[in-house]
């Protein structure tokens, strides 16, 4: 069952795959991915066991939410049985999203709060739309998440794109 080649890079390049896929379909002008040479970092200001932690997902609450593509939030203590993901570009022939724990581990986060690994779970978790517009993400969606984080007094955000 060996599948890892020591003569090739093994991690899939989605930048390369999507560019070649759309070029092959006749779409020129490939998507220009966000690219930076530096990255900001904020270190924990207190022990993780004292921090309120929340999750941000790219999934949607339902099919309508998948179409609306707006930021959304829901209470963390009412874990949904399922979320809408069909509008996202996950690998639909290789896997599924029937288990929330595989992309939105709210239950595991609650366990971590109960056993003291983190201080608490934020009162809400948040969803953001995926969009080709980096301007929208930078000027609208990301600031909206920051506002929610401040409103809910969250210390740490776990970000999980599908």
């Amino acid at each position: 069952m060996t599948q890892f080649s020591p003569t090739h890079r093994n991690a899939v390049s989605y930048i390369d795959k999507s560019r070649e896929f759309y070029l092959n379909k006749g779409f020129g002008n490939p998507y220009r991915w966000a690219t930076h040479t530096e990255a900001p970092i904020t270190h924990l200001k207190k022990p993780l066991a004292d921090c309120t932690v929340t999750i941000v997902t790219t999934s949607a609450p339902n099919e309508e939410g998948g179409s609306n593509r707006k930021i959304w939030s829901a209470p963390s203590d009412a874990i949904p049985e399922e979320l809408f993901t069909h509008h996202l570009s996950w690998h639909k022939t290789a896997t599924h999203t029937d288990d929330l724990g595989s992309f939105l581990p709210l239950a595991h986060l609650q366990s971590a709060a109960e056993n003291g690994r983190i201080g608490a779970v934020g009162r809400n978790f948040y969803g953001i739309p995926t969009t080709f517009s980096q301007r929208q993400t930078k000027t609208k969606d990301a600031p909206a998440v920051l506002d929610q984080v401040h409103r809910d007094q969250v210390d740490v955000a776990i970000l999980i794109p599908l």
């Binding site: 990255a39 900001p40 904020t42 990301a142 920051l146 970000l159």
Partner: peptide, 21 residues
């Protein structure tokens, strides 16, 4: 989502991204 991470980090919120891309 990576852009959201960068915005939060720039504004004092530590983040971690989980991903496969």
């Amino acid at each position: 989502m990576s852009l959201v991470s960068r915005h939060l980090e720039s504004n004092g919120i530590p983040t971690v991204v989980f991903g496969s891309a």
